[in-house]
């Protein structure tokens, strides 16, 4: 028992080996479904592919150079950034507003909580089809209402000026349920005593909101902002169903453009190059967010 021999390397790394064994299942799964596709994507982005999608011609950084000069791709980037700006802040503010409302202790509040979070239960495809009917140029509800009110008709999905806004509106609607649910959960976790003592000190509703609710909610808010940002960058289903990237490329977000390049045009090389660029953008945004956003987060 009391041997003073220095333990061998095998024994010293015992903990590390055990840890690795515990990690192994997730390492394998990640390798198969995340890392391998990722490296494959990076590999393909340096090639032009033939009609069967196999790497055929090594072109180095030519795909990237082409993309950064292509007005279509720059337009995609612009549309994506606009889309993120339209959907994320508004979506979170609306969800926060609903969550604050639904956090009040009233009779029958359960009904409203269910209603506000109900959009989470509808798939992107199903809700996009519903919105497709609402936006319909000749028989859609919105244009009917506008004509009843004597306003000029709007070509919701056909006018390049409007299409991105229309898609954003439907996206906000789809995402609100999830954000609402997470934020409501965050609100419910805030200690009641904080409110009680502040009430005794005579703090008003908005003072409490600003000084207690928002700071205590900040970890949840940070989480939902990060998730919403990534989701917004990766939006695909609603684009595919509502506009297919049109009109005039105004809703051709990067993910949709990748899909089109890969599975309609069979250009896996340029598609992969776009995917790599998107990956870098999301990486940068997330790093920036952790660097600057997290400072304002108050962990208990």
């Amino acid at each position: 028992m009391n041997t003073h021999v220095k333990p061998g390397i095998w024994r010293r790394t015992g903990n590390a080996r055990t840890a690795f064994l515990y990690l192994l299942p997730s390492v394998i799964l990640f390798s198969v479904f995340v890392f391998y596709p990722m490296f494959r994507t990076i590999y393909l982005s340096f090639f032009l592919t033939n009609q069967n999608g196999e790497a055929a011609l090594h072109v180095g950084f030519e795909n990237f150079a082409y993309l950064l000069e292509s007005s279509a791709f720059l337009n995609s980037m612009k549309a994506t950034v606009l889309f993120v700006l339209y959907t994320v802040p508004i979506g979170i503010i609306i969800a926060l507003f609903f969550a604050l409302l639904a956090n009040e202790k009233l009779k029958g509040i359960g009904f409203f909580r269910t209603v506000y979070s109900s959009t989470m239960g509808i798939s992107v495809a199903a809700s996009s089809v519903i919105w497709l009917f609402l936006f319909h140029p000749s028989v859609g509800v919105f244009n009917r209402v506008l004509s009843v009110l004597n306003f000029p008709q709007i070509q919701w999905l056909l006018d390049p000026e409007w299409a991105l806004i229309s898609v954003s509106i439907s996206t906000i609607w789809m995402n609100t349920g999830f954000s609402f649910l997470i934020l409501l959960g965050g609100l419910q976790n805030i200690d009641e005593h904080l409110y009680e003592s502040s009430r005794i000190d005579g703090a008003g509703y908005f003072y409490r909101l600003r000084r207690i609710t928002i700071p205590m909610l900040s970890p949840t808010l940070f989480f939902i902002i990060t998730i919403s940002l990534i989701n917004a960058f990766q939006s695909f289903g609603q684009i595919d169903i509502l506009t297919k990237g049109g009109p005039s490329q105004s809703t051709n977000l990067i993910v949709y453009s990748i899909y089109r390049e890969a599975f309609i045009n069979y250009q896996f090389g340029t598609a992969s190059a776009q995917a790599v660029i998107l990956f870098i953008i999301i990486l940068i945004v997330t790093i920036l967010q952790f660097k600057f956003g997290e400072r304002k987060v108050h962990y208990q």
């Binding site: 140029p137 000749s138 028989v139």
Partner: peptide, 18 residues
């Protein structure tokens, strides 16, 4: 009249006399 890229939309526009 521009009714977009969807077959159903343009057909609906014709049927509803747009």
């Amino acid at each position: 009249g521009n009714f977009g890229t969807n077959w159903d939309d343009i057909r609906a526009a014709f049927a509803s006399q747009k």
